Every structure is written in structure tokens, then in C-alpha cells.
Simulated scan of single mutants.
Amino acid sequence: MTHEELAALPTTTTIETAARALGLGRTRAYQLAREDLFPCKVIRIGTTYRVVTADLLRLMSSNSSA
């Protein structure tokens, strides 16, 4: 995903979208979220996982400048 696509996301996004942006597979993303190891803040609402877009953007920005 481009920075522009990420910036256009709502306040929270699905874990699948975040995984795609990070180059992770869906199964691995859910595994990391369940183990509290996902690299961005994850909010669990019932059985749904949402990723805070600002954290995702911050992570992507720090990775691109490294």
C-alpha cells in the first residue's frame, strides 16, 4: 500500500488491511494479534480486531526512513 492509500484509511482499519500494508499474511496477523505481538495497537471488539491507523502510519513511516 502507498502512503497515500494508508493516509486515506479511517481512524481504525481491519487487521487484514494492516497485514497487507505490512506484508504479513492474514493467519500470521491474527496470530500476532491474539498473542499481543502485533506491531501496531490492536483493539478487539468481540471477535473483531481493528488496528489503529495512526499507529500503522507511524510504523510505516519509521520503516521507510530506516
Rank of each mutant, 00 (worst) to 15 (best):
Thr2Tyr: 00
Glu4Met: 01
Glu5Val: 01
Leu6Gln: 06
Ala8Cys: 08
Ala8Lys: 10
Leu9Gln: 07
Leu9Gly: 01
Pro10Trp: 03
Thr11Pro: 03
Thr11Val: 06
Thr12Asn: 08
Thr13Asn: 06
Thr14Met: 10
Thr14Glu: 15
Glu16Gly: 15
Glu16Met: 12
Glu16Leu: 15
Thr17Gly: 05
Thr17Ile: 14
Ala18Lys: 03
Ala18Gln: 03
Ala18Pro: 01
Arg20Trp: 02
Ala21Pro: 02
Leu22Arg: 04
Gly23Thr: 07
Gly23Ala: 07
Gly23Pro: 11
Leu24Ile: 07
Leu24Phe: 13
Gly25Gln: 08
Gly25Thr: 09
Gly25Val: 10
Arg26His: 15
Arg28Leu: 15
Arg28Asp: 12
Ala29Gln: 07
Ala29Asn: 06
Tyr30Arg: 09
Tyr30Cys: 04
Gln31Ala: 11
Arg34His: 15
Arg34Gln: 13
Arg34Ile: 00
Glu35Ala: 14
Glu35Leu: 12
Glu35Tyr: 09
Glu35Lys: 08
Asp36Tyr: 14
Leu37Trp: 00
Phe38His: 11
Phe38Glu: 05
Phe38Ser: 08
Phe38Leu: 06
Pro39Tyr: 10
Pro39Ser: 12
Cys40Leu: 07
Ile43Thr: 11
Ile43Glu: 15
Arg44Ser: 13
Arg44Ile: 13
Gly46Tyr: 11
Gly46Phe: 06
Gly46His: 12
Thr48Gly: 00
Thr48Met: 07
Tyr49Val: 05
Tyr49Trp: 09
Tyr49His: 14
Arg50Met: 11
Arg50Pro: 01
Val51Met: 06
Val51Trp: 03
Val52Trp: 01
Ala54Met: 01
Leu56Asn: 00
Leu57Val: 00
Leu57Gln: 02
Leu57Asn: 03
Arg58Val: 04
Leu59Ala: 04
Leu59Pro: 03
Met60Gln: 10
Ser62Cys: 05
Asn63Trp: 13
Ser64Ile: 13
Ser64Val: 14
Ser65Cys: 14
Ser65Thr: 14
Ser65Ala: 15
Ala66Ile: 15
